[in-house]
Design a protein around this nucleic acid. Structure first.
Lengths: 336, 336
DNA sequence: TTGTACGCGTTATCAC
DNA sequence: GTGATAACGCGTACAA
């Protein structure tokens, strides 16, 4: 174990209170300052986090509950957050909850038990009542929940989905299959809403069987795509609304030997590198993950240090990147 | 704030020591047991982690230093570990260090400062001297470092690379481009060693310009592939030895309009889903990530609870999955 | 079986 | 500017 304040104090010939002050940036008499600094260095002293935390009721740790580590969205956002807050002396404890509300509640309690100073959550079914039981600042990302007493950093999901769908319609597609996440998730609902809005705006009917609502796993995307291509009236385009769904759908199309975009047009979501690894490059909606992470970190830090108050909902625009996976359907005579 | 032991004790009509015993599973007189249990429930008591940690010198938290969140290997391994240890009441603080030894050292100190009870590290340049300064059990994954006073969970990198290269050679390839990670990394060296061994065994000469040593980023893979395809004597096959390198290389080939496997054969590394998303499906080396994670968690837990002693080096075999990205070169007359 | 009393290392509140 | 001292909440000898 490292030395204690008391020992450092003895060596420096001052009291432990003085050492504590030094550690907390309170200026000392030059001579004492030097003595303390020397003693600390010589003894290799480091603060004991537990004792400090016991006293200050802060742990210099934030907790995060995400759906999944293996998702480029979560991974990048966590990476940015870790980078940002570690520069301020904070660490981050990350837990997975999948999209399961009760698992999420459990993880949150686990983290609170560890006395985290703040929480980053991808909320699913979080209420203001839940929030009242959370004694630390909360910044929610990705999903909008019923709770209002916290900050949110969201993507402009509906707008981007609208844009993607509009693009499909503009290219003559009238039969568009949508692979959606679970309806209890905000992102899934918003993305579907954007799709519906585009259909509505251009007077295109969206058949029920073209909407496949499923989980957020690769396997779900795979199965959903299979289902769509086996539909009696096969859609001419597919829009997968999440990274895993995109990956699964592309795998299914490959396996069925269906060419993009000749046999079917396709738009994906979330990971540009994946879009560029398949051929031809997929048109895709991407999120400003770095900005989301930094913004979340900033807000949480602001709240934890008491500089920020009130609750904001920040919506960052997503980016629809038009590449080569959408074919223009000719001869329909009703192009826009 | 939640109630304290003292308050619970008062309510239950016993001493705080008795409550503490109850919490730690020491049997009490039936009547007291019931009273304490009731008081705890009624007051919503939870242990104060800091006070407990200060006393026990344990935090019920493990630290992890990985290269990068956004790598399917790290992501899946972390996911498995989190899952496993959270079942035992542990949390995990994850930090990124890239492949930078000094950043890694810094992160390790940061975590030790947080009084983690154990450490998972992808070591880069870790020595036994470093290890001596680490007062908690360490399990290293992925990379083998100079340090010996810790456990290792490694993949059979050389064997899998050998197998992949052998496959290329068997299919008639004599000009094989290798995209390698940085030479200071064990995995990069091992994977290259496997490639060299296969060349040697079959008497195939490996030109220097076919070996591109680079970083472990997507961009590196992209540039390396570009370099290889621009070589005067373009190789007939490329072997990318890591997920990001694979992704970058595939993107470069796409961009250059080079077909796999007609124009060039290709073998990738690390992420089966990616391999199946490109067409035709890539032959690929995959790691038993789930098993690696679980094994690491088990070992660390064993060490932390004092049930395990000594240091093991466990090597888990990687899997070469042969798919459709390698073309048989005919007419060379020297197929194996 | 239960209670008393002390210590863990730090910070905050006072007096000086 | 500095020092003495009382918390913070828990675990654990040791005594009862």
């Amino acid at each position: 174990m490292s030395a204690t304040i008391k020992q450092v104090a003895a060596r420096a010939g001052v009291s432990s209170a003085t050492v504590s002050k030094y550690l907390n940036g309170v200026p000392l008499k030059d001579k004492n300052q030097a003595a303390v600094r020397a003693a600390i260095r010589e003894m290799g002293y480091t603060r004991n986090t537990m004792a400090r935390g016991l006293r200050t009721k802060r742990s210099m740790t934030v907790g995060a509950v995400i759906f999944e580590f293996s998702n480029p969205y979560s991974a990048t956002v966590m990476s940015e957050i870790e980078n940002y807050i570690s520069g301020h002396g904070y660490g981050i404890i990350v837990c997975e909850s999948k999209t399961d509300a009760s698992a999420q509640r459990e993880k949150i309690n686990f983290l609170l038990n560890k006395l985290v100073d703040g929480l980053i959550i991808c909320p699913v079914g979080l209420t203001d009542e839940d929030l009242r039981a959370i004694p630390v600042p909360v910044v929610c990302i990705d999903q909008l929940a019923d709770a209002r007493a916290c900050d949110y950093i969201l993507g402009g999901n509906a707008a981007a989905s609208f844009e993607a769908t509009e693009h499909l319609i503009a290219f003559g597609h009238r039969d568009i299959g949508i692979i959606c996440g679970p309806a209890e998730l905000y992102t899934a609902r918003e993305r579907l809403a954007g799709v519906l809005a585009a259909h509505e705006k251009y007077g295109v009917r969206l058949r029920d069987e073209y909407i496949v609502t499923t989980g957020y796993e690769v396997e779900s995307g795979y199965k959903a795509a299979r289902k769509l291509i086996e539909t009696a009236n096969r859609p001419t385009a597919i829009f997968a609304t999440n990274h895993h769904l995109t990956l699964g759908a592309v795998i299914a199309l490959n396996e069925a030997n269906i060419n993009i975009p000749d046999d079917i047009s396709f738009i994906g979501f979330d990971y540009l590198e994946l879009a560029n690894a398949v051929r031809p490059n997929l048109s895709i909606v991407v999120q400003p993950v770095a900005q989301i992470g930094v913004t979340a970190a900033e807000m949480l830090l602001g709240k934890m240090t008491g500089q920020k108050s009130g609750f904001d909902i920040i919506e960052l625009p997503l980016n629809f990147i038009r590449q080569k996976s959408v074919k223009r359907i000719i001869g329909t005579g009703d192009e826009l």
